[in-house]
Every structure is written in structure tokens, then in C-alpha cells.
């Protein structure tokens, strides 16, 4: 009898562990990576916004830049008219904007990106909670004493 229950319990624990290792943890990693991507995008657009604001403030109409050809080889590039700017709106499409239009789009985009980040953060939190839950379940199955929470020092 004992042996049977032991076997059963062992099997269950194993299944739980597998669930944590093969499902929850990869999910967590994936979610974190996605959120990082969004963070990056957010940074790109905030940079772009700052740059455009800079151009606006200084009313720069033509720009000389260095264009990266790859492998850190640069050629000089000349932009005769900076008033029209092509902004990536996603899925490989670029739209020609004026500065004010671009700034409007960028603020919309940033808003969306922050929402996405929030979603991802929620997702990550829930995954972490699930992992914790399953771990607790395993602990109960094994009838181990509850983990003692280390008392945090108050500085």
C-alpha cells in the first residue's frame, strides 16, 4: 500500500517537475526576451524623438552623416532636405512624415510599446507565480517543511 502511494507520489512529483522545467521555465525565458525586444524598440523611438526634436529646435535642414556600410566601414552621406523623414511603422513599411507628423506617430508608438511592456511584465509575473505554485505543490507532496523565509535585515 505504502509502496503504491509512494510510487504514485513519486510519479506526480516527477510530472510536476517536468511541467516546471519544460513548460514554465522556457515560457518565462521567452517572455523576458520579448519584453527586452520591446524595451529596445522603445529606446529606438525615444532616440528618434529626441533627434527630431533636436533638428526642430536647431532648424537644421541639411545633414552630413556617416553611413555604415557594414563591418564598420563608413561613407559620408549627405541629406539635402531633412524635412521629410521616413519612419519605420512596422512590418517593413516606412512612411514619409514631416517632423510634426513623425513626432505624433512616435508618441503613439511609444504609448503602445509601454502597454506591451506592461503586458509582458504581467505575463512574466504570472509565470513566476505558477512556478512557485508548482514548487509548493511538490513540497507538499514530499511533505517537506515549509521554506523558512529569511528575515530581511532592516538597515
Amino acid at each position: 500500500m505504502d509502496v503504491v502511494t509512494d510510487n504514485f507520489r513519486h510519479e506526480k512529483v516527477q510530472r510536476f517537475e517536468e511541467f516546471v522545467d519544460r513548460r514554465l521555465k522556457p515560457d518565462l525565458v521567452h517572455a523576458i526576451a520579448e519584453r527586452d525586444k520591446v524595451f529596445e524598440q522603445q529606446k529606438v523611438f525615444s532616440d528618434l524623438r529626441r533627434n527630431i526634436e533636436n533638428l526642430e529646435k536647431n532648424s537644421i535642414t541639411n545633414v552630413r552623416t556617416l553611413v555604415n556600410l557594414g563591418s564598420e566601414v563608413y561613407v559620408q552621406g549627405d541629406v539635402p532636405d531633412t524635412r521629410s523623414i521616413f519612419v519605420d511603422i512596422g512590418l517593413g513599411f516606412h512612411v514619409e512624415f514631416t517632423w510634426s507628423e513623425a513626432l505624433k506617430f512616435i508618441s503613439l508608438k511609444e504609448e503602445r510599446l509601454t502597454r506591451q511592456i506592461e503586458e509582458y511584465t504581467q505575463l512574466i509575473a504570472s509565470i513566476k507565480a505558477q512556478i512557485k505554485l508548482v514548487c509548493e505543490g511538490i513540497r507538499e507532496l514530499l511533505q517537506l517543511p515549509a521554506e523558512r523565509t529569511v528575515e530581511e535585515r532592516v538597515f
Partner: peptide, 11 residues
């Protein structure tokens, strides 16, 4: 001409 990562200028 790329301007940042998400924008281009015709140049």
C-alpha cells in the same frame, strides 16, 4: 540615409 534605427532620410 539611416537616421537612427527606425528612420531614414532620402539622401
Amino acid at each position: 540615409v539611416p537616421f537612427g534605427k527606425a528612420a531614414f532620410f532620402p539622401g
